[in-house]
Every structure is written in C-alpha cells, then in structure tokens.
Amino acid sequence: MQLQDSRMPSKITVAEALDLYRAFYPSPRGTDELLERFGLGSQRNTRFEKLSGGQQQRLSVALALAGNPRIAILDELTTGLDPAARLEIWDFLSELRRDGLTVLLVTHFMAEAQHLCDRVVVLRTGEVVADDTPDGLSARVGGTQTMTFRPSKPLEISALVALTGVSDAHPQGDGLSVTGVGDFTAGVITFLASQGATAHNLRIDAPDLDDAYLTLTRDSEQVADSTNPGGDTA
C-alpha cells in the first residue's frame, strides 16, 4: 500500500530503503528488479532528500510493491507532480498492470483514471455514485458527441439529420457540425463515402471523465468548491 504524503528519512538511500522494506516480507521482490522496474537504477545510492518529486513517488510505489503483492493500493500518486513526472509514473503503472498486478488507484485526477483504469468507481461524500468503465461512464453522462469537419464537396444537411442517431446538423464556419448519440459517427462516415466526399479537419468531441465526474458530483457543491476554488459552477 502506498499512502499520500508519506516520506522517508531524508538521509536514507534508495537501495537502503528498498532493502529495509524487503526485510518486512517473507518473499520480497529483488532489489535490482525493483530498481530497474521503477527506473531508479542510477539513483541506487542517492539519498531520499536528493531525489526529484517523481523519483520519490516512484520509490514510494516500489516500496509498496517490495513485498510482491498481488494487489496494490495507491493513494494520490501523482498529486503535485509535474506533467513529465506524471507521465513517467503512468507508464510504470501501465507496465505493472500488464504484468497482472491488480491496482486500486485513488485519484482526484480524471485524466489519470481515464488513462490507467479498466473500471472507475466515483465516490461522493463516501458513497458510490457510479461504477463503470471510463468510456461507459463518459457515455452515460450526456452521451452526446459532436463531429465537426469540412466536407470536400457540399452535402445535404437534411440527409445528415436523417441518419440514425443524429440529432442536429448545421453549418459551422466553412464546415459542418453534426451532433448525435450512440454510434452515429460511423453512419456519418459511411454517408460521406457514399457521396464520394471526404472529411477534412475532422474532430470528434466526446464528454470525458471530467464531465462525467462533474455531473455525478454536482449535487454536493462544497466538494466541487473545495477541490477547485477558482473553478466553474455549472
């Protein structure tokens, strides 16, 4: 288990910390394996106080996995890290997941859940308000997507609106904007192909986990306020 805001003594080295925690378990992972897996090989003899934030967090996860567990509980792993360090941690977690380790990740960071998780549970004031895959969760909230593109030749807007799942289509700038639910995008692409047209600058905007989270937790304003003081109130 890895805990938020947990440090190590400032003068302990990476290898010493790993060896200490390995001594707590009956069948630990090897020190070298942990060092290599978490990209800390060249920091082996570096003291904790000299490590960067990302390195400290990687050591923290390495310590949590020193006992060779089958399930790892990781709390607020990337809070306070810069984007590069965050991506680094994400890569390591993806790798661990591929190895068959079950990870329970606690995060306030929706992109993290979207990127790493197979299953997302949203909690509001201690109660489960949703439990789904990241995509399922996004689709469940709102569920509408918007395609914008510039067709290579003029198209009949009424024909677009008639397609399954499309709720609206209108010109936007020098192109078109088509809104709908479900798998309407495939229908639009097929329609374009049948007209011998192609879509330039195609963009599809789908609600992401952030939207889902905001919608699901909207009722409790104090939560949104405390975690996002300058944020919007939808």
């Binding site: 288990m1 890895q2 805990l3 947990s6 440090r7 707590f24 310590l63 006992g67």
Partner: peptide, 13 residues
C-alpha cells in the same frame, strides 16, 4: 510527522 509510522501500518511490521 513524515508519515513514516503511518506507512509502516500498511506493512506486516
């Protein structure tokens, strides 16, 4: 203060 004792709670020791 640094959560070292708390972290040990999450180990067998």
């Amino acid at each position: 203060e640094n959560g070292i004792l708390k972290r040990l709670h999450a180990t067998p020791v």
